[in-house]
Design a protein around this nucleic acid. Structure first.
Lengths: 124, 124
DNA sequence: ATTATTAATGCAATTGAGTTGCAATAATAA
DNA sequence: TTATTATTGCAACTCAATTGCATTAATAAT
């Protein structure tokens, strides 16, 4: 299935580009209110994920957040960093800190989802 | 609110005790089918969490899993270990490996949720 | 340019995990 | 034994996310 370049995709990508925080569907929909349907936001985000353009962070607040893949190569993605969700300002951000874990023998890891929850610098 | 000892709590606790894997509400309900309502399972699990008897793992499959707190002291809980979810057998387990992360200055971490997803020893 | 192909979109409806309100039940305290 | 109130069951609800389907529009083919 060849992807097509559409206004909806451009708008979402642009928004992700100009944000340092990870964004939820909800927030994207609100920000781009009226320009596209909520379902379209979900579909665009999922297609970006499939294409490795964006990575998804499953949060313990029951929502998912999406952030641009910074410095991911075609061949090697490194989303193996920690994420942080602030209980006060609700921001979800990518931390520099990489996840270092010795995978038990015989296990094969396909993806990591590591989230710290608490209060960020501005809210602590 | 003083807790009361009930058959429902005993059954769930017993099930968690005899399982090395973390269990979802769904699985607990199925296993104890007929003996209690789905809502009761949720409520029992939540009360166990509040009491620090059990810890919750939010999974990227959209469900939550619950595991007994092994070796947690009254004063110090250590749920800061990694978890692993197998894409094949669906098991969610606690890994020995502890999460080691340098928390950025100014941040306060309240909880950690670190999940690796892939194929376990038996399924890889 | 024009037409054909099919990815993308909007809308309505649905799924599925988890929660809530409330009356009935049953542990525990008095 | 009685009073108190935590717990349970049931039905209804919330909320994130998905799906079906007809329509629209981006890209490929002519």
């Amino acid at each position: 299935m060849k992807r097509r370049n559409t206004p909806a995709k451009q708008a979402v990508l642009n928004l992700l580009n100009t944000s340092q925080a990870a964004l939820s569907q909800e927030l994207i929909e609100q920000t781009l209110k009226g320009t596209m349907d909520r379902v379209t936001v979900y579909r665009v985000l999922n297609s970006f994920c499939e294409d490795g353009l964006v990575h998804k962070i499953v949060s313990d607040d029951g929502k998912s957040y999406f952030a641009l893949c910074q410095g991911c190569q075609e061949t090697h993605h490194h989303h193996d960093h920690f994420h942080f969700r602030c209980l006060n300002c609700q921001k979800v951000e990518c931390l520099q800190e990489e996840v270092k874990v010795k995978i038990p023998a015989g296990y094969r890891v396909e993806s990591m989802n590591c989230l710290l929850t608490g209060y960020c610098k501005a809210c602590a």
